[in-house]
């Protein structure tokens, strides 16, 4: 039996983020979750931190430390996504207020400490949010990128139109400079773009699996994801909202659910029109060295089976 992989989740919890790290927490054979670090994104960092604590208390896993991180992007004003996730980021179900507080350390410092205190190649960063904390950690510790086993992140888009502007996916758009810094860091990066997540829709049939489980976790996420879904359904006419962030956990548990290519990716930082666009050189026409594996397809049935099966172990 192999030793579990050590991971840190850097996240701006809306419900899909919480599914991602809770599914990891109930997968101790494969994954050891060292910490949850939070950042401003879907909602301000006070709320993302609170949501992380709430989700851990729901799962009775208050042993997992939560570190609060950056309250704003590196250079730009924070843009949030209350239009999708509601004012709290966790609208749709009233979870009790958390009883625990976050740790005292700043999330980027905690990332540096947790990664550098372990052997090289021991820790994988799972990034579900704007990459501000990761960029700050890399700025503080230049050896961080090489010391990581890798970064698996949900962000960007290739052939899918952007979801916050026509050209950009939300996480990269909120902090394009941070994303650019991470992609030029030399870290081993696996990028899961909208091309994958827009294939992974929470249909009514899939939601029903959560509801009919009848467990506190199943019921809570049934309502939270149901709230999410309303936006995508009314806005795009899709049969359900995408379960974006849990793709990161699914990739760690079962990479063969995905297919992709090792290519060069660059993040647009200079133009307002295309700000945050992830320019993926799929055909290697620019001749620059590959810096990320971009996953383009997902077995969405296999994905939901895996993730909901894990989530309902709670």
């Amino acid at each position: 039996m192999t030793t579990p992989r050590s991971v840190i989740f850097d996240t701006d919890p809306s419900p899909d983020d919480a599914v991602a790290f809770l599914a990891a927490l109930v997968s101790p054979d494969e994954l050891e979750v060292l910490a949850i670090t939070t950042v401003a994104g879907n909602v301000p960092v006070e709320l993302t931190t609170r949501n992380a604590l709430k989700a851990l208390e729901l799962a009775r896993r208050t042993d997992v430390p939560v570190y609060a991180g950056a309250a704003a992007p590196l250079v730009r004003k924070l843009i949030t996504a209350e239009h999708v996730h509601g004012r709290t980021g966790f609208d749709g179900y009233d979870l009790p207020a958390p009883t625990k507080l976050p740790q005292a350390s700043f999330a980027p410092d905690a990332i540096v400490e947790l990664v550098m205190s372990r052997p090289s190649g021991a820790v994988t960063l799972c990034c579900l949010a704007p990459l501000t904390n990761v960029a700050l950690a890399m700025a503080r510790e230049p050896r961080l990128a090489q010391h990581l086993a890798g970064i698996v992140l949900m962000g960007g888009s290739m052939s899918e139109a952007g979801n916050i502007t026509p050209a950009a996916e939300f996480n990269f758009y909120v902090d394009p400079e941070a994303a650019a810094r991470v992609f030029s860091s030399g870290a081993s990066i696996t990028m899961i773009p909208l091309d994958c997540t827009h294939q992974a829709l929470i249909t009514d049939a899939r939601l029903e699996i959560l509801r009919s489980a009848g467990t506190p976790v199943g019921t809570a996420f049934y309502h939270l994801l149901e709230f999410n879904k309303r936006f995508d359904r009314s806005k795009y006419g899709w049969p359900g909202g995408p379960l974006h962030d849990a793709t990161v956990t699914a990739y760690l548990l079962q990479p063969n659910l995905f297919d992709g290519r090792h290519v060069h990716v660059e993040i647009e930082c200079s133009s307002q029109l295309t700000l945050g666009a992830s320019v993926v050189d799929w055909w290697s026409v620019a001749g620059k060295p590959a810096n990320a594996t971009v996953l383009r397809t997902i077995d969405s049935d296999g994905y939901f089976k895996l993730i909901f099966d894990r989530l309902l172990r709670l």
Binding site: G162, P166, A167, L273, T274, A277
Partner: peptide
């Protein structure tokens, strides 16, 4: 780049 507002976010 031809930036297309395919998801009507503009």
């Amino acid at each position: 780049m031809t930036v297309v507002d395919r998801l009507n976010v503009t």
